[in-house]
Design a protein around this nucleic acid. Structure first.
Lengths: 153, 153
DNA sequence: CTTATTTGGTTTCTTAATGCAACCATTCTG
DNA sequence: CAGAATGGTTGCATTAAGAAACCAAATAAG
């Protein structure tokens, strides 16, 4: 059977997971954010099988998350770079990283700091328009008419 | 061959993906944030096969993201509820939802608003300690000694 | 109280995805 | 030119996913 499609469930989250929701895609994006661009470098840094990497890179390119740039002088030698869409996943990757560090402990010797100040980042949080942090209990899920759907819990 | 393990790669992101990195887990969490608690309700709202749902719920419980609460009066009748760890994924789910809406258009009739004001949420963003928004180019990746690793791209 | 239905699974079977290793054409390097 | 590296593709074995059938306990209907 074909894997279930997530892009027609009428849900933005499902649609996002359809593009980057598998085991490897977000790790490839994360690695690209660290500066990795070449096929072999992704392969070695992630320890991913070549055919899987090949498949994931193709899908990321198809979905506009990365681009394949020909950097060979006479022929084929490629770099995979993040697009604006791909770089915009920085929020998602960082939120995921911080969540893991908060609940599973520091598995990573690496740290992210503000390039200007050298200080660690603030925790990524959902905020209202005044900049106040909101939990899932502080929001309401409404339809297009503004009617509430269900209660969060 | 067994699926690659992500929890011993020395990467927090990989560790997070080991828990919620598959196609269904985050959707189950998202649905729980909408208020869904019962097995059949997850099944119908997500359109997921029963054995897969069973497996995902077990894994989420094992990882401390959800708890199974016995609500039967004399015997077994269960509810699955988010733990604090699970509710803390709100940031990740919201960031993913906003990313998808920004780049793939509104696939969702549902909207999230501040329960107090009724107004839409601010975009989830990575910020420094002064509250300024940072892109991936504004951060540096350093090791435990503060030495820079590679350049982001 | 008895029967029907719902709930929360498990089992079986088929198809798809993953991982590993081998192979291959082109392209740099020495 | 020889040899290594790059960026794949192919084949095979194992695992996961999806659909449907089946099932025991618990609840609802009458």
């Amino acid at each position: 059977m074909t894997r279930k499609r997530f892009d027609d469930m009428g849900c933005s989250v499902a649609c996002a997971l359809n593009e980057v929701g598998d085991w490897w895609s977000l790790l490839v994006v994360k690695q690209a954010m660290l500066g990795t661009r070449r096929f072999v470098d992704f392969q070695h840094s992630l320890g991913i099988a070549k055919n899987i990497l090949c498949n994931r890179l193709s899908r990321l390119v198809d979905n506009g998350v990365m681009v394949r740039v020909d950097v060979g002088e006479h022929g084929k030698r490629y770099e995979y770079r993040l697009t604006d869409k791909g770089r915009d996943l920085f929020t998602v990757v960082t939120a995921l990283r911080q969540w893991s560090e908060r609940w599973n402990g520091e598995k990573d010797t690496m740290q992210l700091v503000d390039r200007q100040t050298g200080k660690p980042l603030a925790p990524v949080a959902v905020q209202n328009q005044q900049g106040q942090t909101l939990t899932v209990r502080d929001v309401r899920f409404v339809d297009e008419d503004g009617k509430p759907l269900e209660e969060a819990g």
